[in-house]
């Protein structure tokens, strides 16, 4: 039982880290550009397809990973330059609509190129087997690698934003666009760079998850909505908030799906208990979000506006 719970906790962490990779880009783009980007899920899908296609053609997962990062960053930079740049000054409704349109275009475009059948992606050979953890638990090495990758990205992002010149510029652009531009920062280039960075993170998430589930059109949408929940809980614009909220959502969702049906089966012995438990578990993260909002309407790490 203890091993089962430990395994579920690790699964929750792994899910949380994937969500973090998604939400980091989303919250960065919102914080710096004030843009709400529904097409972030499409970049996740682009990453997964690029990885699966490249890995399928070359046989190397690592090349696929590189391709995923490059393809998602390129797609992100492209839509930023052509479409999204015109939307920064518009209201959120226009942003929602334009990025909704981008979802339709991306989804149909990918379906046109790859067809409707899902692609499959295998993890690299060195991560294919299980690892024996302290305590005797066998856990898939690949999922452990995702947790590790998420942690590395979190630390890397914190260093990038807190310690480097680019990070200083990003923070300057976030605080005061005009002043940053007056001080000689090329705001247009900076925005493209930030957007490409966020897109690359989404592509990375898509590629990493592509081995756990099938790679298909529409795969980005459920993750996108959970990423919204994450950044609402964490506070929009806060990467630290996104990190903790992503772990919270990942753990709550995974543990809820695991524990609630069992719990209801203990309390009532009717046949519908498992169904009620499953239905409630699927609502759990939204209930957590509602609870956080009641206490702190701007999220856990959000600034009061």
């Amino acid at each position: 039982m203890a091993q089962l719970i430990a395994e579920q906790v690790l699964n929750g962490l792994q899910f949380g880290m994937t969500l973090f990779l998604m939400s980091a880009g989303l919250t960065l783009v919102f914080g710096v550009m004030g843009l709400i980007n529904l097409a972030h899920g499409s970049l996740y899908m682009v990453g997964a397809f690029a990885c699966a296609a490249t890995a399928g053609a070359t046989g190397s997962f690592w090349l696929g990973l590189v391709a995923a990062l490059a393809a998602a960053a390129a797609a992100g930079a492209l839509i930023e330059r052509t479409v999204l740049r015109r939307l920064y000054a518009r209201d959120h409704l226009d942003q929602v609509l334009a990025t909704f349109a981008l979802i339709l275009i991306f989804s149909e475009g990918v379906r046109f190129i790859f067809g409707s059948f899902p692609l499959y992606l295998s993890p690299p050979a060195m991560l294919a087997g299980p690892v024996r953890l302290p305590g005797g638990l066998d856990y898939p090495a690949y999922r452990l690698a995702i947790i590790l990758a998420g942690g590395v990205v979190a630390v890397g992002l914190a260093l990038l934003i807190g310690r480097t010149r680019l990070g200083t510029r990003i923070r300057a652009g976030e605080a005061d666009r005009e002043m940053a531009a007056a001080l000689g920062i090329d705001i247009n280039k900076l925005y493209t760079a930030v957007f490409a960075l966020g897109a690359a993170l989404a592509g990375l998430a898509g590629a990493l998850v592509g081995t756990l589930q099938s790679v298909q059109v529409g795969m980005g949408e459920p993750v996108l909505i959970l990423a919204f929940v994450v950044i609402v809980i964490g506070g929009i614009g806060s990467i630290r908030g996104a990190f903790w909220a992503a772990l919270l959502v990942g753990l709550v969702d995974t543990m809820g799906r695991f524990a609630l049906p069992h719990l209801f089966a203990l309390l009532t012995d009717t046949s519908s208990a498992a169904g009620i438990g499953a239905a409630l578990a699927s609502m759990l993260v939204y209930i957590v979000m509602a609870a956080v909002l009641v206490m702190r309407p701007t999220g856990l790490f959000g600034q009061n506006t």
Binding site: V229, A279, L293
Partner: peptide
């Protein structure tokens, strides 16, 4: 603003997943 958009979206998803997993 953005919070309103995302929260209404999230609550709608809650109903959606409830409808999917409610077998009756």
């Amino acid at each position: 603003g953005v919070y309103f958009i995302m929260i209404t979206l999230a609550f709608a998803q809650m109903f959606y997943y409830f409808a999917i997993s409610w077998p009756a």
